[in-house]
Design a protein around this nucleic acid. Structure first.
Length: 337
DNA sequence: AAGACGCACAACCGCAGTGTG
DNA sequence: ACACACTGCGGTTGTGCGTCT
């Protein structure tokens, strides 16, 4: 007996509607991420489990930053890509607010071309291209090195960097979740529930409303554009969460983050009712999480990735980043970064 | 103004890894 | 040990939008 198709025929494909997003987030708010097979069945969504997971991890998951990549992020991606190859999930683990899909897209559509241009321009200054999956050579690794050696070295370096960063954070945040998560980041890489769900019960923790506020933020971004066009459907969508009775708004699809001045008061009310979260406006006006968030709050920015979170974003040239960027300052200069 | 083109990104597809009975 | 189910990952595609001609 062969493996059945992943998705039954008849499942909906294509862009997600805001109604579907809200239904999905609402379900995950209640049950937590995971057990994706059960999601379509329990929510009534005409989507396959894969699609639900993908939508959550790439778009609705709390703590996702979208839009422009900063110079630091760009450098990180370039270095990590050179180190790890096209292992986007691994790379994404070091850019906690970015998804692997986002990074992959950014690399394929922009960075790869940019690097190629740089390399073409600088090709007469010596070869920067290494063999195999390492596209950029490193002066500090001038000896030919097998993949196994590379990975061992990488693991050692990562471990040391994490340790150093953890120690650096420990004086002020000895009990902070950031350093704890950092230290445990490796073991948490593949455990989606480890951060905001009790891993035994898979139940949301008591601070769940905090983490889903940022989910609301993600949806709000798309809803902003949506509501601008169809204000009636928006209120309908909100009711869909509690009643699942909203007739579908045909032809309304998720659109790229079009930001408008549409009343955030309406959104605030909507999400306040959805998630019991009062300070939606604060979040919706903030594309990034505020550094003033408590450690507990930052803990819940992301449920699956090693949370070096605030370190990367808020700490200029954190130890980890320094480590990454210092691997070969010479290469950087050659590349003109 | 309109068609062609390129870009950005969400989503899909298929394979691989892992867990479970 | 094996088959199956589920999940995660990377490659690829489809589509909407902006820019160019």
């Amino acid at each position: 007996m062969g493996r059945p198709p992943c998705c039954d025929k008849g499942v909906k494909k294509g862009p997600w509607t805001p109604e579907e997003d809200i239904i999905l987030v609402s379900y995950i708010q209640e049950h937590g991420p995971g057990n994706w097979k059960a999601v379509p069945a329990n929510t009534g969504l005409s989507r396959c489990s894969k699609s639900c997971r993908l939508r959550w991890t790439n778009y609705l998951r709390p703590g996702i930053k979208r839009g422009n990549f900063t110079d630091q992020e760009e450098k990180m991606i370039i270095h990590l890509q050179a180190l790890l190859g096209n292992r986007w999930a691994a790379i994404a683990a070091y850019l906690p607010q970015r998804t692997d899909n986002d990074i992959k897209n950014y690399w394929n559509t922009y960075l790869k071309k940019k690097l190629n241009k740089k390399l073409e321009a600088g090709s007469d200054q010596g070869s920067l291209l290494g063999g195999g999956h390492n596209n950029i050579g490193f002066s500090s690794v001038s000896q030919p090195m097998s993949r196994g050696q590379w990975e061992r070295r990488l693991q050692t370096d990562i471990h040391m960097a994490k340790k150093a960063l953890s120690e650096a954070l420990s004086p002020n945040k000895a009990s902070s979740s950031s350093s704890t998560l950092l230290a445990e980041s490796n073991s948490n890489l593949s455990n989606e529930n480890s951060t905001f769900y009790n891993s035994n019960t898979n139940k949301p923790t008591t601070t769940q409303s905090m983490c889903y506020a940022s989910s609301a933020d993600n949806i709000a971004r798309l809803l902003k554009g949506w509501m601008k066009n169809t204000p009636k459907s928006a209120s309908c969508a909100a009711s869909a969460v509690t009643q699942n009775s909203c007739s579908s708004s045909e032809g309304i699809t998720t659109t790229k983050g079009s930001t408008t001045s549409t009343s955030t008061v309406e959104l605030s009310e909507t999400f306040e009712s959805l998630f019991g979260y009062e300070s939606f406006d604060n979040y919706s006006s903030n594309s990034e999480f505020s550094p003033s968030l408590s450690p507990e709050a930052t803990l819940f920015q992301d449920e699956g990735k090693p949370d070096i979170t605030t370190g990367l974003i808020d700490m200029p040239f954190s130890l980890l980043e320094k480590w990454l960027l210092d691997v070969d300052a010479g290469s950087q200069e050659k590349l003109g970064f």
